[in-house]
């Protein structure tokens, strides 16, 4: 059942979602969508595409539940420890120098990036100096993030191993408490974070950030949407501001990427050259 959706079926589902929920996924990577749709179908025990389509049309699957399930589950806490080390040692202290600096986590799906960032900020004692905004289009997920999310033990083991690799200053277990089999991150970490449900691929944003983290999110988009989102990210950066993508992502296939200079190739940290 894992990957038997063909293109015709996938497109049929995309069209239904657009019609019923107003959510346009037509420019998303098909390989990823196929897996996500299969995931939603198996969650509801649906084996046939027509049944899935009908359930959406009849509103038996609520939009927020659908969104929660279809969003990609990213990665890990402190994925790529070398990036977090760079941020801790170089980039965060640098941007803390300018007053009123703001950082945007433009596509949070499970709090991993947010909690990683806030742990590093607390190590640096900068939590109050830099204003953080985290956008997560799913209200359900946002609610879980605000409550500390609840990660399974496997994920916490990976997070702890990553934290050790970046030579974290504290004991990792200082940052969470167990609730049954799940780990809730300490909500104090995110006390000063501003949250919203902006979906960057669909909505306008008009801000000026000094740093934007958007790691491993561009992989979801086909080239036209990738270009559009790259433009929005870059438009919302001040000149001299940083955009951070996943280590195997790149701006090289986008026009607007010419405004950016790659300042750290291994970690895909770009700096805005011109407006």
């Amino acid at each position: 059942m894992i990957d038997n959706l063909g293109i015709v079926d996938t497109k049929k589902i995309i069209a239904t979602i657009h019609e019923s929920y107003g959510l346009d996924l037509s420019d998303y990577t098909l390989s990823i969508l196929k897996r996500r749709f299969t995931h939603v179908m198996s969650y509801y025990n649906i084996n046939l595409v027509d049944e899935f389509v009908n359930q959406i049309k009849r509103n038996n699957i609520e939009y927020e539940d659908f969104l929660d399930l279809v969003m990609i589950d990213t990665t890990e806490i402190f994925r790529d420890p070398s990036l977090w080390r760079e941020l801790r040692e170089k980039y965060l202290p640098e941007i803390a120098h300018s007053s009123g600096s703001k950082i945007w986590l433009a596509g949070e799906s499970s709090g991993d990036e947010l909690f990683s960032l806030m742990v590093v900020m607390s190590e640096l004692g900068l939590s109050k100096n830099i204003r953080i905004t985290a956008s997560c289009p799913s209200k359900n997920r946002l609610k879980r993030i605000k409550a500390g999310y609840g990660y399974d033990l496997k994920k916490m083991e990976i997070g702890e191993a990553n934290y050790t690799r970046l030579s974290g200053k504290f004991e990792f277990n200082k940052f969470y408490k167990m609730d049954g089999n799940f780990a809730l991150m300490n909500p104090e970490l995110i006390d000063d974070v501003e949250f919203d449900t902006t979906n960057i691929s669909q909505e306008k944003v008009n801000k000026s950030y000094r740093m934007i983290l958007f790691r491993n999110m561009m992989i979801q988009y086909n080239l036209p949407l990738y270009e559009k989102v790259a433009r929005k990210l870059i438009d919302n950066l001040v000149v001299g501001g940083y955009l951070i993508l996943g280590n195997m992502e790149s701006l090289e296939y986008s026009e607007i990427g010419k405004k950016m200079q790659l300042v750290n190739e291994a970690e895909k940290i770009y700096r805005k050259r011109i407006d």
């Binding site: 293109i7 897996r35 996943g246």
Partner: peptide, 21 residues
């Protein structure tokens, strides 16, 4: 295939990467 990513062959003769579970 790079470390810690899934590697897909995507429509249009391109690669796509993914960080899914």
């Amino acid at each position: 295939a790079p470390a810690n990513y899934h590697l897909y062959v995507e429509l249009g003769n391109k690669f796509a990467l993914s960080t899914e579970d």
